[in-house]
Every structure is written in C-alpha cells, then in structure tokens.
Design a protein around this nucleic acid. Structure first.
Lengths: 232, 232
DNA sequence: AGGTTCAATGTTGCATACAAGATGTAAAAC
DNA sequence: GTTTTACATCTTGTATGCAACATTGAACCT
C-alpha cells in the first residue's frame, strides 16, 4: 500500500472517495467523524476544490453529509434510516440471487477464494482487513455475477451498513458471518439460487439483529435519550 | 411550474440535479446530450462552481459522465451496460416485493391514484408527463412502501432506464405498461407479494424486450457497427 | 458564581481567474 | 483538390480569494 496520495490525487479523480470508502469499510473511519476540507486537501496534496468535488460524489452516494458551514461528516444514520438501508440491501441481494440463472465454476472459485481470505484475516487478527473483507464479500458477489451496476450499488449500501454496525455496536460474530458466506456459495454451487437467496435473507437479518438499537453513540441522540426519562 | 430557476438555485442546492433528472424522466433530455457548464450556469443564474458540484453528484448517480475537457454528457449506455442496469433494477424491485410483508389500504390507494394519473396523461396525449409518470411509478412504489433508500436508488435506476429506452428506441406501449402497473397493485392488494414480484419481473422483462438493441443511435457505436461488416 | 455579550477564529459557500487541452477553421504547401 | 499546419476559440480542470456564518472563549456585567 502507498502512502503518498499526493501524487495520484491528480491522476485519479476518484482516489479521495476510494480511500474514504475503503477506510470506512475497514472501520478506520467512524460514523459521525468530521472530514474537514482543508484537512483532506492537505492529506491528498490538492486544493479544497478537488476535495469538495469528491465530497459531493460521496454525498450523492449516501456516505457523508454536510452541515452548513460546520463541516462534512460521515453519516450517522438514525434507527429508522438504518432499518431502511438494511432492508434495501436485503431486497437488492435477495433479488439479485433470485433472478440469477446459474453460477459458473469459475465464479464459485473466485468466491471461495474470497471466503478463504476472510478466514485468514479472522485467524490473523487483522481487524481492519477482516472488516473490509466481510463487507466486501457482497460487492465481490455482485462483481463475480458479472454486474458492475449491482456491484456499485452494493458497495455503497455495504459501506453504509458497516457504518451502521459501528454506530450501533454490532455484536455480529465474524466467524458466523464468514460461515454464512460459505453456505451461500454452497447453495450457488449446487445451482440452488432460491436457497442461496433464502440464506442471504437470513444472513442480512442476522446482521440487523446483531445491532443494538438502544445504545446510540451519537452525542446528541444520546443526550436526548438520557434526558427524556430523567426530569419529567 | 416556475421558470425562474435563478432565484432558487442558491436556496436549494439540489435544484439543478432535480431539474435534470425530471427532464430526463420526461424525455426532454436525450442520452448523449451535452450539458455545458457555462450553459447551465446561465440558465440557473449561478456560477460554474455550483453547476459543477451538481454534475459531480449526477455523475455519482450514473446519470451523466464527463469527457475530459470536452464536456458533460448524459449517459449513453452500451448494450451491455443497458442490460446490467435493467437487471439490477429487476433484482431490486423483485427483491423489494418479495421481502415485503403486507401493503396497507392507504398504500394501495396512493398507488391507484398514480396509475389513474398515468391513464389521464396517456389519454391526454401529454408525452412528457406520460413518460415521467410511467417511470416514476416505480419510485412511487418504493416511497409508498415506506423506504426512502429504496426510492432513491430506484429513482436513479429508473432514470437510467428511461434514457436507455430513448437510446434504443423502445417500442414499449404506454397502455401495456400502465396495465401491468395496475396488475401489480392488484396482487399487492390481495396480499400476494410473491405474485406481485413475479408480475414486476415480467413487466421489466417486457421493458427490456421492447428495446431495439440493433439500432444504436450513438454516432460512434453506429459507425463501429456499420464498418464492422463492410470492408473486412 | 452565573449568565451575557462580543470579538476572534475557523469552516464552508460561492465566484472568479487562469491554465491546459480539445476542436474547428482557414491558410499554406504539395 | 487534398493534406497539413498553425491559430483562434471554446471547454473543462484546478487553485485561490473573499464573504457569510458557526463556534469558542474571554471579558464583562449583574
């Protein structure tokens, strides 16, 4: 991995977004975190203009939001938004598998490789890599099925889900997730797309169930919640 | 409807995008059409900066693309991209209905209203309104089901589909589309989400089948195609 | 001490200036 | 007549400057 982002930010206009998405998927950027334009412009060695343009794109992708004259912040979805996001994701992934014809052996091999990488990251204790791979499995699935449009949509939804998981202190076990990924591939290998879809549905319900919607770590929400039952 | 966009473009940062999306859905903006920054900045009475920011968001949404130092253009998807887009849409909409529990009477009423509006636009011969409503039905469906995330995703996918339909000279009949929308609502009303999903699947397959993938109106693609069989 | 006002600072919002490259056109060369 | 070349023009790419607002902290008043 390279650290000198400065030189590439001009050549690849999407570098800034890519880095931020990757960092979010890896759990290195928390929901609610502030992303200052000046700060980023120094990190990437470009002017605020380019940073701003990247933020605009990330905003359209639902990853960051702007508070007028206060700054850019990584999204901090409310409980309702979190539900909607995961529901949308479930719809998309279940639909993707339901409407699938058949998965070729080459696809299966690619997916198995990915799960093996997940296992390795879990065993190795690399938290960032683990987080990234567990999320990226879903993007990888869409890519492997050969649809870049689906893959792109899933990248955004997955990133948002990872942020939600961080915000609501997901207790979802990495082993379990990885195992479920494997089971989905099994079903695909046997040509049973319906079963794969069902397993995906269950998997994503697990993801949601592991969230603790009570413990909102947002300062404001936390305060609201705390004060609601204190003084009345 | 108001024409003086100038005054609002400052207050509502998303006005430019909204207008472009609406125009695309209405068939008033064709695929491949050039959207000059200066041109737009004059129309909306703002500087190029704001136009550019809007274009960045539209780019992230897959509606426009930029050709370096040549300009911004409404997307002109290749046959392959068109297939992927419609496939993604089918996955999303089928999944949305499959994973749905139950549609309330209020929802059914809203949807029926929409279809009535479609019929009225068809009868009245308002091509733009007809195009808009037929596309927007799907967004409306997601909104009505109560998921803004889904609605937002569908707005983008639907817009892209409408552009694809324009590019590949879709012969899909408006009456037929409208009828299929009605049938989907019927199934939802009877609480048969599976059937609704099946009908949606069929509906979107019709949409794709109505495309004429041979007659690519893009100059470049057209030439490529023409020259491929001419001289070898 | 507690609360209020006001100035200082930091951040985004928006416009503008200029650089760099693409395109179209007309003159020049053959 | 055709091709080439040079130039004029137009468009986006990027940086920068300044204005507007939010926040913070200190001084000040009560």
């Amino acid at each position: 991995m390279r650290d000198n982002a400065e030189r590439d930010a001009h050549k690849n206009p999407h570098l800034i977004e890519d880095r931020i998405i990757h960092a979010a998927l890896s759990g290195r950027i928390a929901p609610g975190e502030r992303l200052g334009e000046k700060e980023l412009s120094e990190i990437f060695g470009v002017s605020r203009t380019l940073v701003r343009e990247a933020m605009m794109r990330l905003q359209a992708r639902g990853i960051v939001e702007v508070s007028a004259r206060r700054g850019w912040f990584v999204i901090e979805p409310s409980v309702e938004e979190a539900r909607h996001t995961i529901d949308a994701r479930r719809a998309l992934e279940v639909g993707m598998l339901v409407t699938l014809d058949r998965a070729s052996p080459a696809m299966i091999r690619t997916l198995r490789d990915h799960v093996r990488a997940e296992q390795k990251a879990i065993a190795g204790g690399d938290r960032a890599e683990r987080s990234y791979l567990l999320g990226h499995f879903h993007v990888c699935l869409a890519e492997t099925l050969g649809n870049p449009v689906l893959a792109s949509l899933l990248q955004d939804l997955t990133t948002r889900t990872v942020l939600i998981a961080a915000l609501y202190q997901s207790t979802h076990d990495a082993h379990e997730s990885c195992g479920e990924h494997g089971a989905i591939i099994d079903a695909l290998e046997q040509g049973n797309a319906t079963e794969a879809a069902r397993l995906m549905d269950v998997h994503l319900r697990h993801v949601e169930k592991a969230l603790n919607y009570r413990s909102v770590s947002s300062r404001l929400e936390h305060l609201k919640e705390a004060l609601k039952g204190s003084g009345g």
